[in-house]
Design a binder for these strands. Sequence first.
DNA 1: TGTATATTTGACCAATTGGTTAAACCAAAT
DNA 2: ATTTGGTTTAACCAATTGGTCAAATATACA
Lengths: 202, 202
Amino acid sequence: MSKQKNTEELILNAAKKLFISHGLEKTKMQQIADEAGINKALLHYYFRSKDKLFEAILEDVFSEIAPILQSFFGEKIPFLEKIGYFVETYIDLIKKNPFLPEFIFNELNRSPKRMINIMISVGVNPQIILDQMKQEVTNGSIKDFDPKQLLVNILSLTIFPLIAKPILMGIMFENDDKLFNQFIEERKTHIKDFISHAILLK
Amino acid sequence: MSKQKNTEELILNAAKKLFISHGLEKTKMQQIADEAGINKALLHYYFRSKDKLFEAILEDVFSEIAPILQSFFGEKIPFLEKIGYFVETYIDLIKKNPFLPEFIFNELNRSPKRMINIMISVGVNPQIILDQMKQEVTNGSIKDFDPKQLLVNILSLTIFPLIAKPILMGIMFENDDKLFNQFIEERKTHIKDFISHAILLK
DNA sequence: TGTATATTTGACCAATTGGTTAAACCAAAT
DNA sequence: ATTTGGTTTAACCAATTGGTCAAATATACA
């Protein structure tokens, strides 16, 4: 079977797999060709250069992440629910794509401007959620913390442990993947609890 | 002037500057030689290979960070003070060496085992601070959160914003360095406040 | 001064890598 | 069957890069 799919898709799949797990510079055009089972020149035939191919992958990856970011930054659901939902969907996304955090982080430092543009084009606009937090403060439902600090706290608590997986694994979980996964799973509720205790006015 | 210092130090300084700001693979031996004002072959004369040279820099960098980690993970000072001290010294360290987080993070993903060994050899042992937290819980001075979650929270809140500087700058601070620095400076007290509110029993 | 030892240099090498090109292949239309 | 157009391939190229080496230079020592 697998009568041979669309060659372009063959390339995209191979490139995605390798770019995400090894990054831009460590992934060689020859590797992508091998992974796709085709000739190297074909890569240049379909996509002009390595950079163009990489960019195609970037867009593809971000179209996957976009909905999560949009619901977090944009939708008008209650604040604490929003946090819980964000933590949960983000963690699940990373579980399915373990190399995503490193990939995004590397790309972010390689060309920040491009990434920021993608973020913005995908609907990331902190103003809405910042306003929402200010509202909650004047409501008297949460303590008077700087909304920007609060926003960064949420992102930190959610994203950092996944980025720092290797070091945490080595130092706190004896390199046991199961233990680490359980820890992350528990985090889904812990982060919401922790933030609730920190900001809720009794 | 500059009668020419010890050649070895010349190399180490040049290599440190370039490795830290551009990473291992993007830094070329020729660049290091140019930066040091010497011939490329001399690099191989003093340090056998690029890897050996890089390792020397790694050790150097970590000897700078070691004291901070040791006082956080090791010393027996009161818990909240410890957090405040850690946040403050860590942020100040990064302000002096802006490329350190990216450098460490990259190296961490490049060869986690080596980094973990360095960490351990430098005195990072989470058991002590975890025990300290358990103690505080049984004391009844802080709420009954899982100490591991708490530890990761502290690290996340402190380290993540510095790692994520480019994206935060672009999305929340209009790429204004001054604004961002002020935000980070305020974080020194905010993190301690935030954690206090979250874990302290009234 | 002459000689051994350590340092420095320029030229060179082999491997890797992104990219190019001319020719071969193949399916559909004439 | 032949032409035509897109597709695929093998061979090749130029640039980069970590590393080597023999010769040159400086330094110390007798």
